[in-house]
Design a protein around this nucleic acid. Sequence first.
RNA 1: AGAGAGAUGGCAGAGUGGUCGAUUGCGUCGGUCUUGAAAACCGAAGACUGUAACAGGUCCGGGGGUUCGAAUCCCUCUCUCUCUGCCA
Length: 423
Amino acid sequence: MLQLSFIRENKDATLAGLRKRHFANADQIVDQVIALDQQRRDTQRDLDDTLALSNAKAGQIGLLMKAGDKAAAEAAKLETADLKARSKELADTLRQLEADLQNVLVTIPNLPHSSVPEGRTADDNAAVLEHGTIPTLHANALPHWELIKKYDIVDFELGTKISGAGFPVYKGKGARIQRAMINFFLDEALKAGYTEVQPPILINEDSGFGTGQLPDKEGQMYFATDDKLYLIPTAEVPITNMYRDVILPEGQLPTKNVGYTPCFRREAGSWGAHVRGLNRLHQFDKVEIVRIEKPENSYTALEEMSQYVQSLLQKLELPYRVLRLCGGDMGFTSALTYDMEVWSAAQGRWLEVSSVSNFETYQANRLKLRQKVAGKMQLLHTLNGSALALPRILAAILENNQTPDGIRIPSALVSYCGFDTIS
RNA sequence: AGAGAGAUGGCAGAGUGGUCGAUUGCGUCGGUCUUGAAAACCGAAGACUGUAACAGGUCCGGGGGUUCGAAUCCCUCUCUCUCUGCCA
């Protein structure tokens, strides 16, 4: 959520940022926010003045009662009726204005960083770099959804019986390589200075709001209605919300957490082409890194995170590219996002395996995550990134490393798996 | 799940209708003293909103109510603790 004071004082910059995102009706909505805010402040002032009078009267009555002057006290009581009615009315108005303002405010996305490229769609994303060589496959190479059947390591039909489409069962070496990747990713993060956490995978409404999934994306999350809990779409939500309503002492910054969780996404409406096999699932595993940084350090931290994710891809010997997302393709809450995509050789396309973002103060403002600098409160910056999401990594390894004799496991994973080939 | 007890400032813990935004202790920060530290003593310190700055307003788990006036009374929700039950 953007800060009201920022919008008020930087209307032009706000509008320019929203335009870069191709956010519809930006002028109208910003004007509405400013108008509502003005009304809110006027009403607040009226209410405050009324309450001040009312408080003064109550104090007088208290003194009169103490002095035993009942008659005067009763007389003073009569004078408060008006104030009471008026303050109730103003309080109602204020509450309504605040709700209206909030409802508009949450529809406004974060403002893009100055380095975010212009553009509307994924085609407009800027390529930052490409690394590794695209493998040449043998004549009878298969896409991963054939390979998993051939070697019987992931079973979609079985998952469909148990749960439904998009809930695969990993079997044998398929399950073991999943566990290997999780351990590998966590160990690497520990070496890079991250602290491992294991958060809940069901979250309440406040947490969903804190990181921006609510009210925007409720349709994308599974919801346990009896208990009003959402299944997490990413560990970003519970890990970042550990810092909701927190004033971090300076000595605790930066915080660097890593967590492994399953992730659940309804993916309502997104089924169709390009979602075969492991490309898009309702349940998948992911290791996530989350950092809280001082504002002046957050972009350095973002670069570090990007380098870190790349180091994982290099250790897995996967060809990848890094994209800087354009204004139109960025997530709602992000100020700058890098996507890492690996080459999926048999599909002949890039697969997004990580998204690393700086949210600046957008989440922190909702979370009320702050530090105190020279006696003043200041919002902190939040960042997160996948490190990494498992299914597409598995898909790329299967496809890129296939030979007529089987699938070669990247050497970094062999000690974790306990085997070097799937055959 | 049942019964009971609770929820107050970083922590502990007073406060049961009227200068209570809140006693006190610990912790924290500053000062005096000291070569330095400890101890002792003195002092400071919450958040939100609002203002050019003051002022003002709000916040004692959340929400609602009673009252001229609520941390304090009532309703409700959530959570915690103890006991019992059940169960990885």
